[in-house]
């Protein structure tokens, strides 16, 4: 029995039906809202585990909803956007959304995103009890304090920038991080050249980290948007 409560914020009825049907068949509990105000109210009163939020709402802009919810809650938000423009997604992610789905999306995709977020939630809960200075994800182990990373028990030889990059990604596991966000964390700015460098470092890091760099297990690429560290069992 799945106990996760998903809040669906969507004004288009067929899409709402599609999502709700999918959630029902996969035994999620759900709440629904068809406008922004209603969504904010319900989030504050029922405190759902995950929020699926459509950006084009009739009353207030989805970005605004994210900003308001983020003032008091860290509930993961998955943004659903009909706009294929990357800038909307990036803005939503930079405002605190965790992941995104672009219409048209497949049911499989929706479920995959929910699972990723769930895993992240349970991981975060387990992290609270564990020591903060060591991060473990599958075969990857990062010791923040010692400044070392291990894969399958063997130390990885990373350059300082690669290590910094790895730390930023591990600290935000499960979240889609925008290029700008990562560059800001690693270099302290997001100048054009650093964003270009970022692509190179992710590629080199991947070569050291992934068994098959062309189908990565740990670092997922979101083309035009950013990267995400996946939770590996």
């Amino acid at each position: 029995m799945n106990k996760t409560v998903v809040m669906v914020v969507e004004d288009d009825l067929p899409i709402m039906n599609l999502i709700v049907t999918t959630l029902k068949t996969h035994e999620y509990k759900y709440l629904t809202a068809n406008n922004g105000q209603n969504a904010i109210m319900q989030v504050s009163s029922y405190n759902p585990d995950i929020i699926l939020l459509d950006l084009g709402l009739p009353d207030i802009d989805g970005i605004e909803v994210i900003k308001q919810i983020r003032t008091w809650s860290n509930t993961p938000i998955i943004v659903i956007s009909a706009r294929s423009e990357d800038s909307d997604k990036i803005e939503a992610l930079d405002c605190g959304a965790d992941d995104y789905l672009t219409k048209p999306f497949s049911v499989e995709e929706l479920l995959a995103r929910l699972r990723v977020t769930q895993r992240r939630l349970s991981f975060m809960q387990s992290q609270i009890s564990a020591s903060d200075s060591v991060f473990v994800n599958g075969k990857l182990k990062v010791d923040y304090a010692a400044g070392c990373a291990y894969l399958d028990g063997e130390e990885l030889h990373l350059t300082p920038t690669e290590f910094k990059l790895l730390c930023v990604m591990c600290q935000n596991i499960g979240k889609v991080l925008t290029h700008k966000f990562i560059a800001d964390k690693v270099w302290g700015n997001s100048w054009e050249n650093n964003i270009g460098s970022l692509r190179v470092f992710v590629t080199t890091l991947r070569k050291k980290l992934e068994a098959l760099p062309e189908s990565p297990q740990y670092i997922q690429t979101h083309i035009g948007v950013g990267y995400r560290m996946m939770k590996v069992e």
């Binding site: 990357d86 800038s87 083309i223």
Partner: peptide
């Protein structure tokens, strides 16, 4: 069709960024 409308508006709406070609092909 979306790509066509973007191309028709010429350079104005093209959003250039530096990308690794392998990532583009994999995508």
């Amino acid at each position: 069709l979306l790509s066509i409308t973007r191309i028709e508006d010429k350079q104005a709406r093209l959003k250039f960024s530096s990308e690794v070609i392998d990532e583009i092909i994999n995508e």
